[in-house]
């Protein structure tokens, strides 16, 4: 049991990286990665929201199925996430106003982060138990953190390079991500020894 959870952790965080392999969460990935500091702040916020979202939606889904209204899933899940992000905003404002200011508009944008809703929906589709869902969401968000911090590191370095005018901004960011995705592809077919 423990080894299957450990392999779920590694696969979800790295081999099946949420951005590099699944394209979920690319908007904030491209938008908040200008500096390693904001990138890590965003990554940590996403971990917090994603794990909580998966826990709550696990019970919400059970409720929907019991009431035979499974088609309300999209509506119910997104409302849960919106409320959760609102809560995180209030808490963050009190605990760490500096981070709150640094994240700025990107914090409420976690609501529209396809990764949060996407992973909540996928956990239901894959029929994960509560424990598996927690590990899955934590690992996925960890993968997001790793990807975004790596990317921010590269972008900080790019500031010192000469880039053709047309490539500045999003184009070079996207191509860099593409090359990183190429690197992550190396993990395909990797069989964990347990």
């Amino acid at each position: 049991m423990l080894s299957s959870l450990l392999s779920l952790l590694i696969v979800s965080a790295i081999f099946n990286n949420v951005i590099m392999a699944q394209f979920l969460g690319t908007c904030p990935f491209l938008g908040v990665s200008k500096s390693i500091e904001t990138a890590s702040g965003m990554g940590l916020a996403v971990i917090f929201v994603m794990v909580l979202a998966n826990i709550i939606t696990y019970f919400v889904q059970a409720l929907l199925v019991w009431a035979n209204v499974a088609y309300l899933q999209t509506l119910a899940f997104i409302l849960v996430i919106a409320a959760l992000v609102q809560m995180v905003e209030i808490i963050l404002k009190k605990i760490s106003p500096g981070l709150y200011k640094a994240l700025g508009i990107y914090l409420p944008l976690i609501t529209t982060n396809c990764a949060v809703l996407g992973i909540a929906l996928l956990a239901v589709k894959k029929n994960y138990s509560l424990i598996e869902s927690i590990v899955y969401s934590f690992a996925t968000a960890l993968g997001f953190l790793i990807a975004i911090v790596l990317f921010a590191g590269v972008r900080e370095q790019l500031r010192f390079s000469k880039i053709p005018r047309s490539m500045e901004g999003f184009p070079i960011a996207l191509i860099t991500t593409g090359i990183m995705a190429l690197a992550f592809m190396g993990f395909a077919g990797f069989k964990l020894p347990f």
Partner: peptide, 24 residues
């Protein structure tokens, strides 16, 4: 490769660059 992840990012990036170029 074009249908996989890297292809997606690179195609979009190059297309955006081209459009920027046209704009300039």
């Amino acid at each position: 490769l074009m249908i996989l992840a890297p292809g997606a990012f690179i195609t979009l990036g190059l297309t955006l660059a081209f459009i920027n170029f046209l704009q300039s």
